[in-house]
C-alpha cells in the first residue's frame, strides 16, 4: 500500500521534472526497535526517490551501521541526511554533506519541506539574499540550527 496517492505522486513527479538538476543523495537512518515512524519514513523516501532518476537513497540501520551514523552525527531515528551526490566521469559517486538533516518523518506540512530541500540541493544554490550570503561567507564560528516543527 503506497503512502503517496497516484495523484500526489504525479504532481510531485511534475515538480521534479521541472526543477531537479543535479543528483541528490538521501541517507536514511532507521532502527529495528522503538521507532514508531521508521517504516513509514523509509517507505516515504523510497516512493519519493523513485519518482526521479537524479534522486538516490541509501538506507542505513542506526545500530548495524553505527560507524556511518557516527560519521554523519546521527544519534536518533528516523533521521535523513539530504546531500549532494557528486558523480565522477568514471561512474563513481561521492556524497557531499552540507549539514542538512531531517529528524523525524517529513509528513504533512514537512513533506513540502522535503520536496523543496531536494530541489534546492539539486540546484546546488541556496537562493539566499545577497546580504545573507555575505554574512554567512564571513562566519568564523559554527552555527547549528534546529527547527522544531509539528506534522500538521
Amino acid at each position: 500500500m503506497p503512502l503517496l496517492s497516484d495523484k500526489i505522486a504525479s504532481q510531485v513527479r511534475d515538480v521534479f521534472n521541472a526543477n531537479l538538476q543535479q543528483p541528490v543523495e538521501l541517507l536514511y537512518f532507521g532502527r529495528q526497535q522503538d521507532c514508531d515512524y521508521c517504516d513509514d519514513n523509509r517507505q516515504l523516501l523510497e516512493e519519493v526517490t523513485a519518482l526521479h532518476p537524479t534522486l538516490h537513497l541509501i538506507t542505513y540501520d542506526l545500530d548495524a551501521n553505527a560507524d556511518v551514523a557516527r560519521q554523519y552525527g546521527i544519534a536518533d531515528a528516523p533521521a535523513t541526511v539530504i546531500a549532494a551526490r557528486d558523480e565522477a566521469q568514471d561512474g563513481t559517486a561521492s556524497v557531499h554533506d552540507y549539514g542538512i538533516r531531517l529528524l523525524g518523518i517529513p509528513s504533512g506540512h514537512e513533506f513540502g519541506t522535503l520536496i523543496q530541500d531536494l530541489i534546492v540541493v539539486s540546484g546546488r544554490d541556496s537562493g539566499l539574499e545577497p546580504a545573507t550570503r555575505a554574512f554567512l561567507s564571513n562566519l568564523q564560528k559554527p552555527i547549528h540550527l534546529q527547527v522544531f516543527v509539528t506534522p500538521t
Binding site: 514508531d36 515512524y37 536518533d76 528516523p78 539530504i82 552540507y98 549539514g99 542538512i100 538533516r101 531531517l102 529528524l103 523525524g104 518523518i105 517529513p106 514537512e110 519541506t113 523543496q116 530541500d117 534546492v120 540541493v121 546546488r124 544554490d125 541556496s126 537562493g127 539566499l128 545573507t132 550570503r133 554567512l136 561567507s137 562566519l139 564560528k141 559554527p142 552555527i143 547549528h144 540550527l145 534546529q146 527547527v147 522544531f148 516543527v149 509539528t150 506534522p151
Partner: peptide, 29 residues
Amino acid sequence: MVLAHRMALESPLVTAEMVEASEFPAVAA
C-alpha cells in the same frame, strides 16, 4: 524550515536540522 537548510547549503559552518517535535519530545522539552 527550508531557510535553515538553505543556510546550511550556503555555508560549510552551518548545520541545520528539522526536528519533528512530537517524535522527539525529550529534545523539544
